[in-house]
């Protein structure tokens, strides 16, 4: 799916647009999505802050947020889901802060990854392991 200018306007009054990544006939891996998004470019460790729980309270709805000052778009991936792609957020020039919060479903313990494409064309990446547990016996 490619966002048209009209979609951008409809979604992007605050300068932000989000698109759920299209489901592909053959599930794409996190590496596939990353390669497509960055074209193989190097990614800096700093520049995007990803906030995720260490252990999910409910794997069906895990709150994830990111902040990436200066980002033009941010791709979210979940590398252990059957389909690793989650969403790409596009920020227009009028976007105040380049941040978003979403809830995503995680099928098992895995890494959630945020890759930011900056306005200058460079990339930055952050990753967090989210454990999906079957429940324990906290003392």
């Amino acid at each position: 799916m490619k966002l048209t200018r009209r979609d951008m306007l409809a979604l992007g009054l605050g300068g932000i647009a989000a698109a759920a990544l299209p489901y592909q006939a053959l599930a794409a891996s996190a590496d596939d999505w990353t390669a497509k998004f960055t074209g193989g470019a190097a990614m800096a460790d700093a520049g995007v802050t990803l906030t995720a729980p260490e252990i999910a309270e409910n794997g069906n709805t895990v709150p994830i947020s990111f902040e990436a000052p200066g980002a033009a778009s941010v791709m979210l991936l979940a590398d252990g889901n059957p389909e690793a792609g989650v969403a790409t957020f596009n920020f227009g020039p009028s976007a105040g802060s380049r941040m978003a919060s979403v809830r995503i479903r995680l099928s098992k313990t895995q890494n959630v990854i945020a890759i930011a494409k900056m306005e200058d064309g460079s990339f930055a990446k952050a990753s967090a392991t989210v454990k999906v547990t079957i429940g324990g016996c906290g003392g």
């Binding site: 260490e54 999910a56 409910n58 709150p63 324990g136 016996c137």
Partner: peptide, 21 residues
């Protein structure tokens, strides 16, 4: 508070709340 309330103890007893570190 204990960060893992809804995981280590029954979350149906306090479904209104989320914890975490």
């Amino acid at each position: 508070a204990f960060p893992y309330m809804p995981i280590a103890n029954p979350k149906w007893m306090f479904p209104e709340y989320s914890f975490g570190i």
